[in-house]
């Protein structure tokens, strides 16, 4: 912006650059306040409060929204994340393999699962797999299905992240390990992957935040009351009570986890940036 301003001829307008910047900032504040005033005047506050912020209704959500819904959300997310991490590491190593077919399979997996909506994968795991393999049960019931669906979704992203992390490790590390007598596999396990994981912890934590939100897709698998997570729980209670307050509280529960996690990611990124300097 200042580049554009500097390019103009300040003499012509008779304004200093500082004055122009102050004017521009003033205009932006004006727009901001205008929008706030418009929303404030046009929204029906009474109805909004009635619909979204009924305190007695909100109180009735506890403790179930924490002990069942939030707990399940966390469980679904973590099991999906762990499965995705293991699968992602495997696919990353296949992608870097010297064996052609491994590379191709990994490449196809990544392209396919990055290109599909998570919802479609949930439906696939919930409906298509039981139909295609009758009699075979995904172990762990709903928990197993959710872990599988979230794992399949996140493995593609994690594989690409981990592959980039491995490739960021200087070639000299592998050469030093090999020259000491490490096999390729041992060198990967003892020397390369531990270093790569330090690089990829911030992006993987980011993926955890995304998964946390994607766990809401359990909605489409059909779950029992005890298996409900935040979104399903909020939606069910909203329709039971004909009021949207449970949705708002469920949303706050998400933020309770995602905001601190986002803070941690930024801290980790800052530390990683410092370490590589």
């Amino acid at each position: 912006m200042s580049g554009v301003e500097a390019g103009r001829t300040p003499v012509k307008t008779g304004m200093t650059r500082r004055r122009k910047r102050a004017l521009s900032r003033g205009a932006q504040y004006l727009v901001f306040v205008g929008v706030l005033v418009f929303i404030g005047l046009s929204a029906d506050w009474g109805r909004l409060r009635n619909q979204f912020a009924q305190t007695d209704l909100a109180q009735r959500l506890f403790p179930d929204i924490i002990t069942i819904a939030l707990r399940n959300t966390v469980l679904y997310t973590l099991s999906g994340f762990l499965l995705g991490l293991v699968l992602g590491l495997l696919i990353a190593l296949m992608r870097l393999s010297s064996v052609g077919p491994y590379r191709w399979v990994a490449g196809i997996y990544i392209e396919v699962f990055r290109g599909l909506p998570a919802l479609l994968i949930f439906i696939f795991v919930g409906v298509a797999v039981p139909l295609a393999f009758p009699g075979t049960e995904i172990p762990g019931g709903t928990y197993g299905k959710v872990a599988l669906a979230l794992g399949l979704v996140s493995a593609a992203y994690m594989a690409e992240t981990i592959r980039a992390g491995i490739q960021a490790i200087p070639k000299g590390q592998m050469e030093a390990a090999r020259s000491l007598g490490f096999s390729h596999t041992r060198a990967m396990v003892s020397i390369i992957i531990p270093q790569a994981f330090r690089v990829v912890i911030p992006p993987l934590t980011n993926e955890l935040v995304l998964l946390f939100k994607d766990s809401s897709l359990v909605l489409f698998l059909g779950v029992t009351l005890e298996e409900r997570e935040l979104t399903k729980f909020g939606r069910d209670l909203a329709s039971e009570t004909a009021n949207s307050t449970p949705i708002l509280v469920a949303g706050l529960c998400y933020l309770l986890v995602t905001v601190p996690l986002g803070f941690v990611v930024r801290k980790l990124e800052a530390r990683a940036a410092e370490a590589t300097r």
């Binding site: 200087p170 590390q173 050469e175 030093a176 020259s179 000491l180 007598g181 490490f182 096999s183 020397i191």
Partner: peptide, 17 residues
């Protein structure tokens, strides 16, 4: 791998872990 154990190598860029 067995042969390389008998041969130490030192690199220009150290390559410590």
């Amino acid at each position: 791998d067995a042969v390389r154990r008998r041969i130490g190598m030192v690199f220009q860029q150290f390559n410590l872990f």
